[in-house]
């Protein structure tokens, strides 16, 4: 599964990460898994200000990621 990052998360983690899919994990579980892997940015990865987007739609914490191969982490937008 590919995780894509934007804004300040991209500075910290790069454009994208490839992680092994973990069954039918939820967004909340993915956040926790990534926060353990990257403790320096754990606070951001777990923050509700960072929204998670699948197939160009914002999804909630209970959304199940099974079957999806792209997940995006979107910090609050800056505007133009």
């Amino acid at each position: 599964m590919k995780i894509l990052f934007f804004g300040m998360l991209r500075d910290a983690l790069g454009d994208e990460l490839e992680v092994a899919p973990a069954g039918d994990e939820t967004v909340a579980q993915l956040r926790t898994r990534l926060a353990r892997l990257y403790p320096d940015v754990a606070r951001d990865l777990l923050s509700p200000r960072i929204r998670v987007c699948v197939a160009d739609a914002i999804v909630g914490e209970d959304f199940r990621l099974g079957g999806h191969d792209h997940v995006e982490f979107l910090p609050p937008v800056s505007g133009g």
Binding site: G7, P76, V77, G79, G80
Partner: peptide, 22 residues
């Protein structure tokens, strides 16, 4: 555009970088 356009904006200055919000 200043609030809702989907951009992430960073100022790179002589003393460092900072992500900005509306």
């Amino acid at each position: 555009l200043k609030t809702d356009a989907v951009f992430w904006k960073r100022e790179d200055t002589t003393s460092g970088s900072r992500w900005i919000e509306p």
